[in-house]
Design a protein around this nucleic acid. Structure first.
Lengths: 338, 338
DNA sequence: AGTTAGCAATCAAATACAAAGAGTGCTAAA
DNA sequence: TTTAGCACTCTTTGTATTTGATTGCTAACT
């Protein structure tokens, strides 16, 4: 366990490093952080902190840099609270009042807001569909050979898809489709849809296979479709000094380009609504130079999607987490009447 | 006008430079390009080509590098034809046979194919909507307070949007909406939709404003919405040696992040279906280090969207253009019965 | 007149070396 | 327990030197 002064020193080092991106020296701490000890004393503390693994040293004659363990302690115990200005609060409030008709849009707006305020890159993904139940399926005829299927879930999410045919479809057929599909699929969860659809195809062979088959294929496809991932402020990262290393910059682009990796990252284990993964704590090795804060975005119990912030290990965790907490609160206040 | 040998030399220099990304020396041309002259002769030709502006010299003791003017001549007159292997043809054919239900998907697949084969980054945008005519609008009630509007154009493009209400909507109302909107808007072009909608709002004030107004707003919004831009293979660029310059890499990310710039670029003047912009030829200064090839992607007269390839000035124009031409041909062959 | 061998001149890139400067770790004293 | 003092370490910066590739020019050759 660290004593109080050690924690203070660690906190000062981390905050200084977050600000400057330069290894922090004992001298600069004495000058700028009101620690009423000589640099030699601080040096002793720093040596201890390094021995316990909270700090790293790039080389003998440089200052200290926080290790992942150091950041972890900082995030868990030392965060400044509510690190967010009045202007920022105003900006957030305005953005969140934008009227939206689709859940994805709200997630996008929130991700954009976070990116604007924190100056980090965000990635976001819509609400997970696979646990939701199908409330209703509607088929609509567009022209004579094009059908749109609209699928509505119990939480109000809407998915739609278009199916084209080589033969004309009649209004009568559409009616039948509506009736039959709702019969089979209503109340089914998205991720277990395969079975009912197969049974269905088998049962209804009397119905023209040319019509039924493409419909089923397309619906399966849409429901299993990878969630779309949205990116905000990818170029912001390049203003940070750590991205002057080509190695790091390349890695970053690579990560952002690997959709599966991001999806994994956003969907991985959620103990809390806000989760912090620091550098090597990330499971994927490509992420070792970055920190990620994920934010499960919801109103009450209703899942609105997940937003991830990806930045350097030297991320301003305090700001990021404050913003997320504020948004979460605001969103629930705004909608408590829903 | 350049004589035949000068053209041969220029072509050899450009192709060598495209391959190696290193300034090309007189000696290497003699060794690798079967030019039956001594390096001194080639040197004289190179000096002439430089004087006429087709070549640049990084410094006195380096080889030569093509200038924008040099690339331009190459693209206009010296391209190798049909620079595309059998395997590549096979790969393209397979990819293009993927069945799609929406035009945007086809554009995405094509963009992806081009990116895979050329190893360059592609950006793409769906077909332009503003010239299209509204064929039909359908309203569908989802639940009791959510309406979906589906808009169908004369060329078969579909746009849909969701509108939420604070009050219940009845089936009867939906019927009326369908009738009224189709009456007013059928046959109208997308980009001139404002006027009819305003008249409409004015005419039908008897109808509940709470219902009509949000619908009109949302429809206007969707129709004027910026086209979505899709990106393929952004990280591929970082394997190219020119992206070892942080300056260039940053610029590249910046360009890709500026949606308006890309939209401009994809929509700008089309003399031909395939257009090449080399380095400084691009209007926007940010693009001065890159070349862009745009490809208006269509079947017959039907616009399918536009695809842009963005790469270094040292792009393999021959390959890129061959691939585009082949895809264009293939697409029209596949669908000549449509 | 066109071509080429030969060679000095040029310049970036690599290598080597020498300070300079920032910061630490340790010792001994307060 | 704290701290002043100082030697030690290691990066950074600057400067000079060498190396090597390539050109441009001249004079000879076809």
């Amino acid at each position: 366990m660290l004593d109080d002064r050690k924690k203070k020193v660690l906190q000062a080092i981390i905050e200084e490093y977050i600000n400057t991106a330069e290894p922090v020296s004992s001298g600069s701490l004495v000058n700028n952080y009101g620690l009423n000890f000589s640099s030699a004393t601080i040096r002793n503390e720093m040596a201890d902190l390094e021995k316990s693994g909270y700090l790293d040293k790039p080389h003998t004659s440089a200052g200290r840099v926080p290790s992942a363990k150091g950041y972890r302690l900082y995030v868990d115990e030392l965060l400044r609270d509510n690190d967010i200005s009045l202007e920022e609060i105003k900006y957030i409030s305005e953005k969140l009042e934008t009227k939206v008709n689709e859940i994805e849009d709200l997630t996008k707006i929130t991700a954009n807001t976070i990116s604007e305020i924190t100056h980090y890159t965000t990635v976001s993904i819509g609400p997970k569909t696979n646990k939701q139940l199908i409330e209703e399926i509607k088929f609509i005829l567009l022209g004579s050979r094009m059908l749109m299927a609209v699928i509505l879930t119990d939480t109000g999410l809407v998915k739609e898809t278009i199916i084209k045919f080589d033969e004309d479809i009649t209004d009568r057929q559409v009616e039948t489709l509506n009736y039959m599909f709702n019969n089979k699929l209503k109340g089914q969860p998205f991720d277990k849809i395969d079975r009912p659809l197969e049974e269905f195809l088998f049962d209804e062979m009397t119905y023209s296979v040319n019509v039924i088959k493409p419909i089923i294929e397309q619906i399966k496809k849409v429901l299993q479709e990878d969630e779309k991932i949205y990116l905000e402020g990818a170029n912001k990262a390049f203003d940070l000094p750590e991205f002057n290393s080509l190695e790091v910059a390349k890695n970053f682009i690579n990560v952002l380009d690997t959709k599966e990796l991001i999806a994994d990252m956003l969907n991985s284990g959620f103990a809390q609504d806000i989760n912090v993964y620091i550098g090597e704590e990330n499971e994927n090795d490509k992420l070792k130079d970055f920190s990620i804060v994920t934010f499960k975005h919801k109103i009450g119990d209703k899942d609105l999607g997940t937003i991830g912030i990806i930045g350097p290990k030297r991320m301003d965790y305090s700001k990021v987490i404050s913003v997320m907490k504020y948004i979460s609160k605001k969103l629930n206040d705004n909608n408590q009447n829903n």
